[in-house]
């Protein structure tokens, strides 16, 4: 026999809050999707370091999100969910594809174009090279916060890991990056700040 499940309700005393929630539900899905797109694309790019691949990932991600729209629980933030979809797509299609494994140097050159000085250009190239050397789970966690712009809680949700795990992955990623950057084998880089 089936029955209605019990759930937590808002007491009448905070019905104003629930009203606000209701309003935000109305401009929910499409608006949130639109707002998440730039960060989503940047995250896709940071994982693949390739414009076309980022385009493909974002397009597939949006397509899947639209298809699964009914599964998304209204009132919840959409961005972690979208990020999760994108990550799944990336892991499925991308990581096992050897073709994509190596990042060409000229791609690194393209990245560096945005840098103002030759020194910064070198530094930018160095950091992306270093990012290639850290374990992918740490890289995904770090970029999820730094590039996708998710809060720790949202990033933990997107990556499907506890917040504590997320934080330790980020910390380890940062310290490995620093070790790579500081190591004598790489050209000497000094912080300009």
């Amino acid at each position: 026999m089936q029955q209605w499940g019990k759930s937590i309700d808002l007491p009448p005393s905070i019905s104003i809050t629930s009203q606000i929630t209701f309003m935000s539900l109305r401009l929910s899905f499409d608006k949130q999707l639109e707002e998440a797109l730039p960060d989503l694309w940047r995250y896709a790019w940071s994982l693949t370091r390739d414009r076309d691949s980022a385009d493909d990932l974002v397009q597939d991600c949006v397509e899947r999100a639209l298809r699964k729209r009914l599964l998304w629980f209204p009132g919840r933030s959409l961005k972690p969910w979208l990020t999760k979809i994108l990550l799944n797509l990336f892991r499925d299609q991308w990581r096992h594809n050897a073709r994509h494994q190596t990042v060409a140097l000229d791609q690194l050159n393209n990245i560096a174009e945005i840098a103002a000085s030759p020194h910064e250009r070198l530094e930018v190239k160095e950091i992306w090279r270093a990012l290639d050397k850290i374990p992918s789970e740490q890289k995904e966690a770090l970029l999820c916060v730094v590039i996708a712009g998710l809060s720790y809680s949202d990033a933990a949700e997107a990556l499907d890991i506890p917040k504590g795990t997320l934080m330790s992955r980020i910390a380890r990623a940062r310290s490995k990056l620093k070790t790579e950057m500081d190591s004598p084998t790489s050209p000497k880089i000094r912080s300009v700040t």
Partner: peptide
């Protein structure tokens, strides 16, 4: 924190038109 700033600054920013097209 400089590392993070560098990474952030070196990721290209897609144009709104481009994203609209993807969508």
């Amino acid at each position: 924190s400089h590392q993070s700033d560098l990474i952030k600054a070196s990721v290209p920013v897609p144009s709104p038109e481009h994203l609209a097209q993807l969508k």
